[in-house]
Amino acid sequence: MKTASVWTIVPNLLRTLLRKDVALKPKIILLAGLLYLISPIDFLPDAIIGLGWLDDLIIVPFLGWLSYRNLPQSVQNDVVPSAPDSKNKSLRIIVYLVALVVVLCLVAIMGDTAISFDDNGVRSTD
């Protein structure tokens, strides 16, 4: 049975977008998942606390899995290695955590939660 961490699988799955031996269908499915993840349009709005991210937590991994299942067997073996790569594991985790912090900071900076509206429902420019 193949065992690998998500820290190995996700980057390897993203690398399949650049491989020439991968058909267009798995690439489109994976891109659809990525676009859904960053898109402001969701089935459940993110304003609903807790439920807003639930659709992202279900749809994005599902599309990643579906993309993986549509890959050729040789590419699947490359995406999920049989033995986890132990060298540079701590460095890789640090890089991913830094990337996560950067993304969260960008979302916090770009997201304006202090929006006010006047009595007519028009956004004010305070």
Rank of each mutant, 00 (worst) to 15 (best):
V6D: 09
Q76E: 07
G111P: 08
A47F: 13
N12K: 06
P72A: 06
S5W: 13
L18I: 11
W65P: 08
A99I: 00
L31Y: 11
D21G: 02
V75A: 01
V103D: 00
S86P: 12
D46K: 15
L106P: 05
V10I: 15
I41S: 07
I9N: 04
L13K: 00
D118W: 04
L51F: 15
V101R: 03
P72S: 06
L18Y: 14
K25V: 15
M110H: 11
K89P: 09
D42E: 15
L44T: 08
I9C: 05
F117M: 07
R69I: 14
D21K: 04
D21P: 01
N88K: 14
V98Y: 01
Y68P: 02
I29N: 02
R19H: 08
K89W: 15
R19F: 06
D21M: 03
D46H: 14
L63G: 01
P61N: 11
V79E: 00
L63D: 01
V103L: 03
P72Q: 05
D56F: 03
G64M: 13
L104G: 10
V6H: 10
T113A: 12
L97S: 08
Q76D: 07
S67V: 03
L13H: 01
F62E: 09
F62S: 13
N12Q: 08
Y68L: 07
V75M: 02
L30P: 01
D42A: 10
L54A: 14
L54G: 10
T8Q: 13
F43W: 06
L63T: 01
A99S: 02
R92S: 13
P11T: 04
D118C: 03
I29E: 03
L71E: 01
L44K: 05
F117E: 07
L106D: 10
L17D: 07
A114Q: 15
G52Y: 02
D78R: 09
L35T: 03
D112P: 06
R92F: 10
I29R: 02
L14G: 08
G52C: 04
N77F: 08
L51V: 14
F43G: 02
V22R: 01
V79D: 00
I58E: 07
S90R: 15
